[in-house]
Design a protein around this nucleic acid. Structure first.
Lengths: 147, 147
DNA sequence: TTTATTTAGGATATAAAAGGTCTTAATTAT
DNA sequence: ATAATTAAGACCTTTTATATCCTAAATAAA
């Protein structure tokens, strides 16, 4: 249905949560789960995916947990989403040349390529650090409104 | 998984096939199915969806079949895809204000809005008529190459 | 008016993906 | 040693995707 999965969404929340923690702090899954409204066990699974794809680093044992694998300013939204979901392809025909036998003569293929490139440009054009900062600004604005 | 469904893809093929037929010709499902590599019964179902969404017109009975509901130059790629799949939303939070409780303070929401708008702009910016013409040009080019 | 052909609509079936839970093992600070 | 924590993967349930099939309705033509 051409939509981000919950796992993808949860991964983004987790990355943002980590970006908002003090430098060097190791964060428990339980904290991510509670603060970001992500089911406990599902969060653990998503974190595993992010570890494997090199976005976050894990620390086992007592006082173990997760940190970002590199500065938040070096992690893009695309890194996180593809870290969880695998590479994004808006249409089968984009996976690789020859995946669709109609490749050579299909005029729609070109449009999908354009859309795909544009989407990647947008997702890869914003870092977790930037998102975290925008998030903090929005929080501030909202708390003012409430008063 | 953020990908166009087969139904969506088949709908596009069907619309393109109709656009390539002579003015006024009524086309059977069987022809669409064979020429566009779409399973027969699945094609019939997709055509129904396109009829309901007003992209295609049906004609029952002997010599019945399908035609485009309006000139191909008035039908965009978006019309066809959403005609089959329903409205596209890249993330749940875009469906409507309040769908995601984190709406107000989620910084990612803004990025999804941007991506969604861009995608819609691209899909709505090309008509079935244009695609059909590009398709014919590609066919010509490829048949030359073969020789 | 009958018949053959075609779409309409919906029921059904199967497989895959999404979404979530649980258990056991490995690791490690205390 | 012990308790706390992630790692890995098995497992489960629901939803979506991808079809197929059957009956009804429409209609052109015989």
């Amino acid at each position: 249905m051409m939509r981000l999965t919950r796992a993808g969404e949860y991964g983004v929340r987790a990355a943002l949560h980590l970006a908002n923690q003090p430098e060097g702090k190791i964060t428990f899954v339980s904290e991510i789960s509670e603060k970001q409204d992500v089911p406990r066990h599902f969060a653990a699974k998503v974190m595993q995916l992010l570890v494997r794809s090199g976005v976050v680093r894990s620390h086992r044992g007592v006082k173990g947990g997760f940190t970002l694998a590199r500065p938040a300013s070096k992690i893009t939204l695309k890194d996180v989403i593809e870290g969880v979901e695998g590479q994004i392809f808006l249409n089968l025909c984009l996976i690789k040349k020859g995946e669709c036998p109609r490749d050579d003569t299909c005029p729609v293929h070109l449009i999908w390529r354009e859309a795909q490139d544009k989407l990647m440009e947008i997702l890869d054009g914003v870092t977790v650090a930037e998102l975290a900062e925008t998030g903090r600004a929005l929080e501030k604005k909202m708390s003012k409104k409430k008063r």
